[in-house]
């Protein structure tokens, strides 16, 4: 079977994934992705009737076995500083990041 994830496809995925890979990593990862796809192709051997629904969860969510949604109320977090202190860079209570590039949408 030819490689499904070509160099071109791989580079597009890396861009979407917001990664920056060195060549050695990239070669390993692309090879593993193609190997994994061989295993995933097993799924195509299964005859699936059109009426088989998808399962997003194993255990069905029935009313008796599910938590009731809580009221959508704003609750002040008791220790905002503890959250902000996690940020790599803050200034006057704001999280600081590099400039956000402006992109013209096509």
């Amino acid at each position: 079977m030819s490689e499904q994830i070509t160099q071109e496809v791989f580079e597009h995925l890396v861009e979407l994934a917001a990664l920056q890979l060195d060549p050695e990593q990239a070669e390993y990862l692309r090879r593993q992705l193609n190997n994994q796809l061989k295993a995933i192709h097993e799924l195509e051997a299964i005859p699936l009737d059109e009426d088989i629904p998808i399962s997003l969860h194993g255990v069905p969510y029935e009313e008796s076995g599910s938590a009731k949604p809580r009221e959508d109320e704003w609750i002040k977090y008791p220790d905002v500083k503890a959250i902000l202190d996690q940020a790599p860079q803050i200034e006057d209570g704001y999280i600081v990041v590099p400039d956000i590039p402006h992109t013209e949408l096509k």
């Binding site: 496809v9 995925l13 917001a18 990862l29 990041v97 590099p98």
Partner: peptide
Amino acid sequence: FNDLNKMYRFTRNEGFGLQPKLRILMGMY
């Protein structure tokens, strides 16, 4: 960096090992 996207990419490259990267790439594909 003076570009947020570059900061994202270099941070994630330095911070993640090979297995998280592999899962992100396959998940996106």
